[in-house]
Write a protein that binds this DNA or RNA. Structure first.
Lengths: 154, 154
DNA sequence: GAGGGATAGATGACATGTCAATCAGATGGC
DNA sequence: GCCATCTGATTGACATGTCATCTATCCCTC
């Protein structure tokens, strides 16, 4: 930090590219998802995580951890989704403080309707634009960074 | 979309990795930037774009386009940054409707103080974790996706 | 089995982002 | 030159996310 090692041209370009892609991809996927399925990305993520779970239900904290969301954010978001009938809250049998989110039939219908189009969009705007080697590189590199960031001591 | 082509294992893993990295990297960079320089990432981006510009000033719409922000978002954000003394608004000489944002001395000081640490964080949490080949792949792939998404007809 | 922390979740105040409406000034056709 | 339209920017209402705080319950130790 004393003598900053600036990014060289290639690194700079990769970093800018990453941030631009991040933004554009996000906008486009969110736009299509909302247009075609009436869901925001956070909505979709919640529903999709729930639907992949054996019993279609999860403890709030478990879901929050999986999604890397704060409890507070999840709680607020679920209240909104609950009002729209996509999920319900249930008491937790094993922990008096706890709560469980469950997918409603309507929620299930919503993800199932949304999923094919969303996956297609992910393909169209990202995956299918990459060579197999690039997919492999992206896979390797992102997981390395995730592991690094998830390390306790930063 | 009729017969959805789901993602294969590797693609799925890359996609999840990307989204997880996106989230964790963002959180960490934002956290450090706020802690060390008292700036949010949007703040930093605005200041950094302005500081790289010849005259330290830009038309609002020009800046909004570069950052891929809506005019409205930029306008709101600049009001806040202006209140903190980081930028000022000026009238535009050539277009009576237009406005120009300019970096203040304090704004300049803020980016210059923030930049080395921020770049170091980008290195530490991303760039330096990648092999040269991976940096090259990331560069190539992100720009391809960006070009694709920037294409007028979607 | 009674405290004293820790943890799960909810909540309210606030910061930030979005969307639609508005206003002033530019621009083009006639 | 004048009107219709477009564009740059601002604004206000609202949606979303964050942070600090609160309550209830759990869990550990004594």
């Amino acid at each position: 930090m004393e003598r900053p090692r600036w990014l060289d041209e290639r690194e700079q370009s990769a970093w800018r590219g990453y941030r631009r892609m991040r933004r554009l991809l996000d906008l486009e996927l969110a736009r299509e998802l909302m247009r075609d399925a009436g869901l925001s990305e956070p909505d979709y993520d919640v529903l999709s995580d729930l639907s992949e779970t054996p019993d279609q239900r999860l403890r709030l904290s478990e879901l929050a951890d999986r999604m890397l969301w704060s409890r507070s954010r999840l709680s607020h978001h679920l209240t909104r989704m609950q009002q729209r009938g996509l999920v319900t809250r249930e008491e937790c049998a094993t922990d008096g403080r706890g709560a469980v989110v469950a997918l409603t039939a309507e929620g299930r219908r919503a993800v199932e309707a949304a999923a094919p189009g969303h996956v297609a969009a992910v393909r169209r705007h990202l995956i299918d634009l990459l060579t197999p080697d690039e997919v492999a590189a992206l896979d390797a590199l992102t997981h390395r960074v995730v592991d690094h960031l998830a390390r306790p001591g930063e």
